[in-house]
Amino acid sequence: MNTRALPLYATILIFLAAYALAFTQFPNILSTRVVGNLLTDNAYLGIVAVGMTLVILSGGIDLSVGAVIAFSGVFIAVMLRDTGLHPLPVFAILLVLTTCFGAAMGFLIHRLAMPAFIVTLAGMFLARGAAYLLSVQSVPITHPFYRTLTDAYWLMPGRGRLTLIGCLMLAVFVLGMVIAHRTRFGASVYALGGGEATARLMGVNLGRTTVLVYAFSGAMAGLSGIVFSVYTGSGYSLATVGTELTAIAAVVIGGTLLTGGSGYVFGTLVGVLTMGLIQTYLVFDGTLSSWWTKIVIGLLLLAFILLQKGLLTLSQTRLAKGTA
């Protein structure tokens, strides 16, 4: 077994243990209703976290995604209000926009050899500013197609709703896993995160990989924006502030190393669900403040960083002993 996979197993174990613990207290938490809601409520976060996973695997970071989600919501709402366009072409235009936006950031990061942190921070302000420019107020979406989207669900046994956006998130995770583990592009992303100089020696096209990875993250942020607009039925420029950090937290809790090159897309799904589970538990409990979510997530993050550091040390000492 690879030491690299240990954080993933730890994540899964923690998730299952937490779920079991919550189940003993509130048996309802395993009902299809709760599970369905868990997927629906976290759909936008999960989708954007898939993009973030690839970015972090490549050794980068994308701070712009929260602002891009907000921009997407406002863009859709304003377009639907002011033009007679059907939502589907609006979605297409938006996805092209956010993908190009991500690609442009990737281009700058590679071409100017600038830290991703700075470039995407600038991207964050840009996208947030553009959202304000379109509308400062929250814009409701009244298009009938949106009703169709929200009403599209499969009623699971036990009256739980598996919504379209919940399914979309799961589909995006499958897509992310295929890209990361079954394509040459995915291997290049891991290579880039493992070491730029070595990756170049092995024939990785660094520029292409960097541009593509941020373009993918931009596309996922756009898709997440669409899902968020379906979920809330409006577009608001002040929405999803700090979502990029929540996504990063989900990625790290999912066992991906922030320094890049090590981690799994599946882990991010478990990370997102773990965070959703904590929230659900607090709702069930009813007496605790919702801020406890942040505290528990903070503790979990800390625990995972320590775990990864510990595993790193462990594998190194074991290697040293192995060769002795």
Partner: peptide, 28 residues
């Protein structure tokens, strides 16, 4: 030093850039 990537598997390192593919995906 720095020839190969420690965070990839032995097989990935050995075949990097020349991975066998089936339907466009890497045939592991």
């Amino acid at each position: 030093e720095v020839n190969l990537l420690e965070n990839l598997t032995v097989a990935q390192n050995l075949m990097f850039g020349r991975e066998p593919r089936k339907w466009g995906l890497v045939d592991s």
